[in-house]
Amino acid sequence: MMKFIIRRLLSLIPTMFIIITLSFFLIHIAPGGPFSGEKKLPPHVLANILKKYHMDEPLGAQYLRYLNDVILHFDLGPSYRYEDQSVNGLISATMPRSIFLGFVSLLLSVALGGAAGIISALRQNKWQDYLSMSVAVIGISVPLFVIGPVIQLIFAMQLHWLPVTGWINSRAGWVTLIMPAVTLAFPYFAYIARLSRGSVLEVLRSDYIRTARAKGLKESVVIGKHVLKGAMLPVVSYLGPAFAGIITGSIVVETVFQIPGVGRIFVQSALNRDYTLIMGDIITYSAVLVFANFLVDVIYGFLDPRIAYK
């Protein structure tokens, strides 16, 4: 097991290297650049700027310089569009908020989605099933920029229960977390509910559940001990990519609820062709993703004894 973990961790290094290399060149292949705005810059000004950021050098040299900075110094470089700000600084200032919000949302969606899925499966084709699956369909099909404003309208504008926008460091405090977390959790809740309903139903029909019932076990033991472990596996494998997606911020939720998170910076960087910041986003996101998938693999090993790590 330990050997597997170490080997799997080491394999993350070439993965990250390939991601960095590919995205570096792809970004530079795309037409336009950080300084090609609507208003043309005078040639000598542009030359000065390019020289400052070493962008007058050949692409290969730029790549090696970038690799050197990233790998040896963990320095993602200066942002080309946010003056005097480094990519490291921008990400580390905003990322913790997104991580926190994402984490709360993920916990919410796993707890509620899992419960809704299990109840639906156990009450298949009864009202509990129809109710939670209808909510899940809404969660999957209605976009966040509709859900967010609608719950703002109801709970903030009409009922005045919650502040419309803001973050936990504002005057309103922790309650500001409720609406963005619920909004962000909704699609994940929906997906997890459908996923767990399907897998619980599948396990319920399996031969070993019939055996468990024939042994005279209580239904609560059959479900809790015999069904859930096997039924959790598909949900766990979904959690890897879900985790990476949810903690790297959502531009929609951050815009709707005015949260200074990393999601807005990510999207803005792409629109700005802010090369170093785009690279920073990609590296952050992929590092989280490959690491989350690694964790899923390890958890799988604990859940399913048939997986042998060699």
Binding site: S206, D207, Y208, T211, A214, K225, K229, L303, D304, P305
Partner: peptide, 12 residues
């Protein structure tokens, strides 16, 4: 039961 391959819980 008939199929011993599937009649025991593989996770326990």
């Amino acid at each position: 039961f008939q199929d011993p391959m599937t009649s025991l819980n593989p996770y326990l």
